[in-house]
């Protein structure tokens, strides 16, 4: 192995005394401190902060408008244009979910229903938001494009039960999705 001799840079007398460098450093740190105090930190405006540093004061200030459409927040179920539940309770998402956060009870659609040909829909659909890791596997695997990760991220509760999203809550978050796969429509 070849040996490489690295020559340390020669320092001038001023650099050796070291105080100049410390002083310069202090000027820099103090400038940052001062800018933080008067609310003029570099980047404070772009990051839309209150001005104390570049930090956003979270619960009062939010960044929701800036969130991209594809933001992966809470998983939620969606309905199609005709208010049909898109989920056919195939349970693929339940199987794929790495932390096993999803629990589905499949149910049959009665024969007199408009959508009887779809045959199945979930009777109960629970996602335990304490377990969910927001990986997006469920969205990836769903053959019906019925489950999506929505840009909601504020999931709080004081009990474990509150943290489980049931079917109604999931549809409430998910809402209606239009213009996607319309496998069960006549449109197809």
């Amino acid at each position: 192995m070849a040996t490489i001799k690295v020559q340390r840079p020669k320092l001038s007398a001023g650099e050796k005394i070291y105080f100049g460098a410390i002083f310069k450093g202090m000027v820099i740190t103090l400038r940052h401190a001062f800018r933080s105090l008067v609310g003029k930190s570099v980047g404070a405006k772009e990051l839309n902060s209150t001005g104390v540093g570049i930090t956003m004061q979270y619960p009062e200030q939010k960044w929701d408008e800036e969130l991209p459409e594809y933001y992966r927040g809470t998983p939620a179920l969606v309905t199609n244009e005709e208010d049909r539940e898109k989920c056919v309770s195939c349970q693929l998402c339940e199987f794929i979910c790495p932390p096993k956060a999803i629990k589905i009870t499949p149910g049959e659609i009665p024969t007199d229903d408009e959508w009887a040909k779809v045959e199945k829909r979930p009777k109960a659909f629970d996602i335990d938001m304490i377990r969910c890791i927001y990986c997006g596997m469920c969205e990836e695997v769903c053959p019906e494009e019925a489950i999506f990760l929505r840009p909601d991220y504020v999931v709080t509760g004081t009990t474990r039960k509150e943290m489980v999203h049931d079917k109604d809550r999931l549809y409430e978050i998910g809402g209606k999705r239009v213009g996607l796969v319309n496998k069960w429509n006549d449109l197809k």
């Binding site: 940052h32 401190a33 800018r35 933080s36 105090l37 570099v42 930090t55």
Partner: peptide
Amino acid sequence: FSAIIQDRVGPN
């Protein structure tokens, strides 16, 4: 103080 030096807020 360390927070404002580093453009943060600190425990406030």
